[in-house]
Amino acid sequence: MDLDPRQYENLAVNDNDIHNIVLSYLIHNCYKESVESFIACTGATQPADYLEDMDKRKRIFHFALEGNALKAIELTEQLAKDILENNKDLQFDLLSLHFVELVCSRKCTEALEFAQTKLGPFGKEPKYMEKLEDFMALLAYKEPEKSPMFHLLSLEYRQQVADSLNRAILAHLNLPSYTAMERLIQQATVVRQCLSQEAGKDAPPPFSLKDFLRS
């Protein structure tokens, strides 16, 4: 048993709000063509510099996702000069992406040189030590893909770093780091869980986003 539709179907939702929610999601994820199509179809208006920044962000995001961290760093510094200086964690993650790329390319001597010059200084801070050891351990394996640290070579890890970088740039541009869509889903899920707990045994089943999207 789900919530009774009569409880919410009379609640008016403004089309503009929905357009803005969708648009913010598309902009956040740098879907430039989709943004342009969406604006053309709905007549929604967005400042021009959003599109320009989005183009740069898209390139940065893709470079990070491909593991070309040095290019991502270069473009990030062009877009927002001090963003990495003020975010050591992100700087470390990007540099380590490049290190991983060198290891995967079997350029071990180069990787070691890079680690010593660029990653080494982070070793003075205990919070980076463990991560550094994980990355350095990749060098012990002739086939790092088969090492216990294989997750550091995965697309998921690069995606994670690329997402962090994207959020940092958005925050720097005074844009929301998280999309309205994400926030709404998170909030709706929490509200449904709370309602479920309050209602006790008469409560509808726990909220599942997957099931909701199917219905």
Binding site: A115, L132, M136, A137, A140, Y141, P148
Partner: peptide, 17 residues
């Protein structure tokens, strides 16, 4: 590297120094 991962991580970390 698999059986004594922690030791190996520390030793490889030494390469930075």
């Amino acid at each position: 590297a698999t059986s004594h991962m922690t030791d190996i991580q520390k030793l490889m970390g030494c390469l930075l120094w």
